[in-house]
């Protein structure tokens, strides 16, 4: 099962490298990692997705906790969590296919950011599954490049 870890860290130089280094040293694979500042400028949040089947999630979180700059780790419960990812997709297009791509984009509520003679760039926000589904539909057109942010997530409700 995929776990989404929401990790609060001190906003200090080298913290990202310490976290990333820990994963590689202990042999844990990171599926995705997103970092940004929080409402408190001294604190950053890392959202890390890892495969719990490959690595005992308890060992991952305990090792993370040992880093002095890591303040708090939450293994987000998928039921009580809203998760999103953003992707930029460059897809081949010409006069013939442009219309179909625009239709697909509309269904997925993707934005079209750029239209060139032979390509288009789409922006989509959604769950990982939704982005995967869009990519599948676009595949026959020829996907040139994909840039994904990795998952970010927040708990529902007041907490």
């Amino acid at each position: 099962m995929k776990h989404t870890l929401s990790v609060l860290v001190e906003n200090k130089p080298g913290v990202l490298s310490r976290v990333a280094g820990l994963f590689s040293r202990r042999g844990f694979n990171i599926d995705s990692l997103a970092v940004g500042v929080t409402e408190n400028p001294d604190v950053s949040r890392m959202t890390i997705t890892v495969d719990g089947k490959e690595h005992p999630i308890e060992q991952v979180t305990k090792q993370l906790h040992k880093l002095i700059n890591v303040i708090k780790i939450t293994d987000l419960d998928p039921v009580n969590t809203v998760a999103r990812e953003l992707a930029l997709i460059k897809v081949k297009s010409d006069a013939g296919s442009r219309g179909e791509i625009m239709q697909i984009a509309e269904i997925f509520r993707a934005n079209i950011l750029d239209v060139a003679r032979n390509t288009m760039v789409l922006e989509i926000t959604g769950t990982t599954e939704k982005i995967d589904a869009l990519l599948q539909l676009l595949a026959p057109q020829g996907v040139v490049e994909i840039v994904r942010t990795g998952r970010i997530a927040i708990e529902r409700g007041a907490k």
Binding site: P13, G14, S17, R18, G21, L22, R25, I68
Partner: peptide, 14 residues
């Protein structure tokens, strides 16, 4: 040296 020693320290400072 803080980079080199990262996996073998409890903590480090530059």
């Amino acid at each position: 040296i803080t980079g080199i020693t990262q996996p073998i320290v409890k903590h480090s400072y530059l």
